[in-house]
């Protein structure tokens, strides 16, 4: 059923109207969620579909952010070139790091991804001349979006609203591509590997090659998300590649439900909204957020989307 409805298009069309709510605050929030949703969805290509637990996915997010920021700010490269470049550079790094990581399994794989991510962080933190070191690169320019004002109805909008629409369109295309990947025979092969790597090897699948390609693809999409986030955040910082960022995206994915395509996107939305609301009401937010997460993780087995889908099935059976 769900294959008939182009969900990516539906979600994008609904989300498109956020700037007309009239508050810049909602536009920023929606931009934040859209970018982090892409980031979480890219991780799920590894976690949910290939069964690879990466503790260092923020590395590729950070590489994408720095690549695009350095190109745009330091070298004045237009966004149309720097954005794909961010994905490609992140994918190249993922290819190299992944080459070593896929040689290991389970916890050893996870630890090695973490180690590579910390190397990326250390480089961002120390290479002052290029990355700005601890202080990062503030003042990343917005892409040139003057042409959007020429579109009827978008004339009076602010730069932040234009950027949101751009982000939404790019994220929609990227998510559609991800959906095509997981629904393709190639994606099915990844699922086979997740279910039983030994068996997959036995029937002649080159497991490592498939894992490496999934790792590279996930890095590519994380890099794209990073590029968008760097501009949205108006600056890139070493924190982007730090392990806490990797943990955050892991929580989003698990919270939303890694067994469902849209799970990580929902997780990104829920975590961002929770964080936004709770931190603005109390300084004891870690306690409250932690408690809510524990309840959600225990109460919603299979994540929020997994639990809702299960509930829907049970209701339909009645």
């Amino acid at each position: 059923m769900s294959r008939r409805i182009p969900w990516v298009l539906v979600v994008a069309l609904v989300a498109m109207w956020v700037p007309w709510l009239g508050s810049r605050f909602y536009t920023f929030l929606a931009t934040d969620i859209a970018i982090l949703a892409l980031f979480a969805l890219s991780l799920n290509l590894l976690l949910g579909y290939t069964g690879l637990v990466s503790f260092g996915h923020a590395a590729y997010f950070g590489i994408g952010a720095y690549t695009s920021a350095i190109l745009m700010k330091t070298h004045g490269v237009p966004f149309a070139l720097s954005f794909p470049a961010a994905g490609v550079v992140a994918a190249l790094f993922a290819l190299v790091f992944g080459f070593f990581c896929v040689r290991l399994t389970k916890i050893y794989f996870a630890m090695l991804t973490l180690a590579f991510a910390q190397i990326v962080w250390a480089i961002c933190f120390k290479w002052n001349d290029v990355t700005g070191g601890e202080q990062g690169l503030p003042n990343v320019p917005y892409p040139e979006l003057g042409w959007m004002a020429a579109i009827p109805g978008l004339g009076q909008m602010r730069a932040g609203d234009h950027f949101y629409l751009l982000v939404l369109a790019l994220v929609a295309v990227a998510v559609a591509a991800l959906r095509r990947i997981v629904a393709s025979p190639y994606g099915r092969m990844l699922t086979v590997i997740r279910e039983n790597p030994e068996r997959a090897e036995f029937i002649g699948i080159n497991v490592r090659l498939y894992q490496l390609s999934a790792f590279t693809a996930a890095g590519f999409f994380a890099g794209l998300a990073g590029a968008l986030f760097g501009i949205f955040n108006r600056g890139v910082f070493p924190d982007f590649a730090y392990w806490t960022k990797s943990a955050e995206v892991l929580i989003m994915t698990i919270l939303g439900g890694m067994g469902h395509f849209w799970g990580p996107a929902v997780g990104a939305m829920v975590l961002t909204l929770l964080n936004q609301q709770i931190t603005s009401y109390t300084e004891y937010w870690p306690l409250i957020l932690g408690t809510i997460l524990i309840v959600l993780l225990f109460g919603f087995r299979g994540g929020i989307v997994g639990a809702l889908a299960g509930l829907g099935r049970r209701l339909r059976r009645r």
Binding site: S23, R24, F25, F28, D32, G136, F229, N233, R234, G235, F237, D239, F240, T244, Q276, T279, S280
Partner: peptide, 17 residues
């Protein structure tokens, strides 16, 4: 202690509060 969280919070303070 995160620069990106500081940006988020600053925007939140300006736009919502």
């Amino acid at each position: 202690g995160n620069a990106d969280e500081a940006v988020r919070v600053a925007r939140d303070l300006i736009l919502r509060d």
